Amino acid sequence: MDERMVVYEAKKQSPIVAYILLVFFGVLGAHNFYLGRREQATAQLVCSGAVLATLVWLFLSFAGAGMGEFSGGFDAMARRVFALYAISIIWGIGIFAWLMVNAIQVPRLTAEHNLRLYRRMFGE
């Protein structure tokens, strides 16, 4: 067996690994990093980070209300609780849809990645 073929077999990506990354770390774009799709992976990571930061801020401001540190009365607290739930639901639906589309695309994306790798290694 050609040495290049051994290297190719060692470097090619597996759809099973991509699915495992999608299931456990899909929100962070790990499966896209694995498949060499850095732009989409970075977008998923940034979106998730921004939403997480917003949710933490809202949660902490809501938790602060229980400690008597909340100014603005019950109305302001109700608006923040609603915002917390609304952002959580919208983000959850959006990321679920994004991940479902990615899950459907994993076999094709893996094959494309492996084909690019093969062409780069063997010059075909």
Rank of each mutant, 00 (worst) to 15 (best):
L55A: 00
R119Y: 06
F70P: 02
F62M: 15
E9Q: 15
G49H: 03
R108P: 01
M100Q: 02
G92C: 00
I16D: 08
G36A: 06
G68M: 10
V51D: 05
M77F: 15
F33T: 04
G26I: 02
G26A: 08
M67W: 04
I16S: 12
W91F: 14
L84S: 02
M121A: 05
I87W: 07
R37T: 00
Y8R: 03
R80Q: 15
V6G: 12
V7Q: 13
R79W: 12
F25N: 00
G94Q: 02
S14P: 04
A53G: 10
G72L: 14
Y8Q: 08
V101F: 11
A76N: 15
V27E: 11
I104N: 07
M100A: 09
I90F: 11
E112R: 08
C47G: 08
G66D: 07
M67S: 08
G49Q: 04
Q105S: 11
E112L: 06
L55C: 01
I20S: 05
A30N: 04
L22T: 01
N32W: 06
G73S: 07
G73C: 09
N32L: 15
I16M: 11
L28W: 13
A65K: 03
F24E: 01
L109P: 03
L45K: 02
V7H: 08
I104Y: 06
E112W: 02
G29Q: 10
G94D: 03
F70N: 11
I95T: 07
S48M: 14
S71M: 12
L35Q: 10
V56R: 01
A83S: 12
F96S: 07
K11D: 14
K12M: 15
P15I: 01
W57R: 02
Y118S: 07
G92Q: 00
L115R: 15
V17D: 04
M67F: 09
Y19D: 00
V101H: 08
N32E: 15
F74K: 13
A41E: 09
N114W: 09
W91T: 00
L99E: 01
A50N: 06
F70D: 07
E9M: 13
G94C: 04
H31M: 06
E69T: 05
V23L: 14
A18G: 02
I89S: 00
R119M: 10
E9F: 08
A50T: 12
H31N: 13
E124W: 07
G64E: 03
L115G: 07
G64P: 03
N114Y: 08
G94H: 04
A10I: 03
L21W: 01
G123S: 09
L45E: 03
A83I: 02
N114G: 08
N114M: 07
V106C: 09
H113M: 04
G73N: 09
F70G: 13
Q13C: 07
A111K: 11
A97G: 06
I20L: 10
T42M: 15
E112Y: 02
V6W: 11
I20F: 05
R37Y: 05
L52E: 08
W91A: 07
G92P: 00
